[in-house]
Simulated scan of single mutants.
Amino acid sequence: MPSPNGALLRSAPLIRKVAHPPSVDANHLQLSYALSFAIMHLLAMLVFLPWFFSWFGVIAFWVGVIVFGQIGIPVCYHRQLTHRSFKTPKWLEHSFVVLALCSAQETPAKWVAWHRKHHGNTDEQEDPHTPLVNFIWSHVGWLCVKNQSRTPMSFYEKYSRDILQDPFYMYLERSRAAFAWIYLLHAFAYFLIAWAISFAVMRSNAPAFQMASSILVWGVLARTVYVWHITWSVNSLSHIFGYRNFNTPDHSRNNWFVALITGGEGWHNNHHSDQASASVQTRWWEFDLNYYFIKCLERVGLATDVVPLARHRRLNGAASPATLSVADAVT
């Protein structure tokens, strides 16, 4: 419930300390993830070499963060698919999913299942990424070891059955190569288009190649790693640092820094108190850019059934079937 007299709750409720990761086979690394993370971080460090710097590369980086990192992950994967906070035409939903795949954050069924499991077991033993294990675990460690509680059939059946009813999402799950090819093709398109435009302007292959390499390093490699970290920061920082508007039975917090770098996802305590809402803005200064984007889609007729905040639903005296909880989405 909201804090008394609108006061900000500073301390989290006392809950059971999680001493070890949930159902983890500690002797086995998830090599595909660990190696991918290591290689991508090493490649992203090319931004520190002067040869790869260009202002066009920096622009490509920030545009990519908005298009792939904001629209793809928090808007589509999180609010649309996981919580069913709004609807779009299928062609647009699938387009948003392709943008999310270009952020290399797994298939929609797997991402949704992980997040729904988090909401169903927040800061408890079976939470996939609670920081009550430790900070590194919540940020990235949980992805790097095999977790026995995430076995495909039972895991998907419980948490993302509705997602896999879509043939496109089922295809992505069955054909793991499709996910990889989408990411690689978008990287190749970045390089090829940048080279073609640069060559047309400069009329010289060497500077065109350098510009295309800069845009590849900044606009794809560094952007992918940055979007990973800002997404992971919601799991880690927003369960450790910040204030609380609502007395939820977990450690979720509102973190202004995470909200700033994620377009609003850092108002995490607000979200845990009202998971179904398309908005996480409960105070005027808690800006939620992702929600503003959803409202723009609604204004032009591309989004429907946008779920308002719980207090607005109560005032209207009605609730959409999508407004209850994550549990309702998976039954």
Rank of each mutant, 00 (worst) to 15 (best):
I71V: 15
C144E: 13
I215W: 04
S54L: 01
G141F: 03
M45P: 01
L14E: 14
L324Q: 14
H129E: 00
H186E: 10
A7Y: 10
V97D: 03
H41F: 08
A189G: 05
H115F: 06
T331V: 14
A12K: 10
A322H: 15
G242H: 06
L31F: 12
L297F: 14
E106F: 08
H186V: 10
A222P: 02
N316D: 14
A276Q: 04
N269F: 02
L309Y: 02
A206W: 12
I230R: 07
L43V: 13
Y183L: 13
S32E: 15
Y169L: 03
V65T: 03
F293Y: 15
E286D: 04
P2Y: 08
P131T: 00
H186I: 15
H268Q: 11
H268K: 08
H129M: 00
F48R: 05
A104C: 11
A259S: 10
F246I: 04
W284P: 14
H28D: 07
A100I: 01
L49P: 02
L99T: 05
C76P: 07
A26R: 13
D127K: 06
G317I: 07
V133L: 06
H41T: 01
S320P: 01
K117L: 09
H94M: 03
W142E: 00
W232H: 09
E126V: 06
F179S: 09
M1C: 10
A19F: 08
L192Q: 07
S85V: 04
S233G: 03
I230P: 01
E126N: 13
V112K: 02
E298A: 10
F246C: 07
W195V: 02
W51I: 04
A12D: 11
V98E: 06
M1A: 12
I136R: 03
T130P: 02
L221T: 09
S277D: 05
F191E: 03
T224P: 02
V330L: 13
N316Q: 15
I39E: 04
V227T: 12
E126W: 05
S325M: 06
T130F: 00
N147E: 08
F241Q: 05
P128M: 02
F191H: 12
P22S: 12
N134M: 00
S149N: 12
V258A: 05
S3Q: 14
V201Q: 07
Q30F: 13
L237M: 09
T107F: 00
E157V: 08
D123C: 02
L29T: 07
Q210V: 04
S11E: 15
F61P: 00
A12G: 09
L324A: 12
L324V: 14
P321L: 04
R244Q: 08
W51E: 01
K17H: 11
N27Y: 10
A187S: 14
A303W: 06
P249R: 05
L192F: 14
Y156S: 06
W51M: 04
L184Y: 13
K87E: 11
G301K: 11
W232S: 00
P249D: 09
V75T: 07
G263L: 04
E265H: 02
A34Y: 05
S175W: 14
R311S: 10
S3F: 11
S11M: 12
I230W: 09
V18Y: 02
F188A: 15
G72F: 02
N121G: 03
G57Q: 00
A196Y: 08
L185Q: 13
G120R: 09
V258Q: 06
V234L: 08
N269V: 01
G317T: 07
R223F: 05
Q30T: 12
V306R: 06
M170T: 14
Q125L: 08
Q210D: 01
W55V: 11
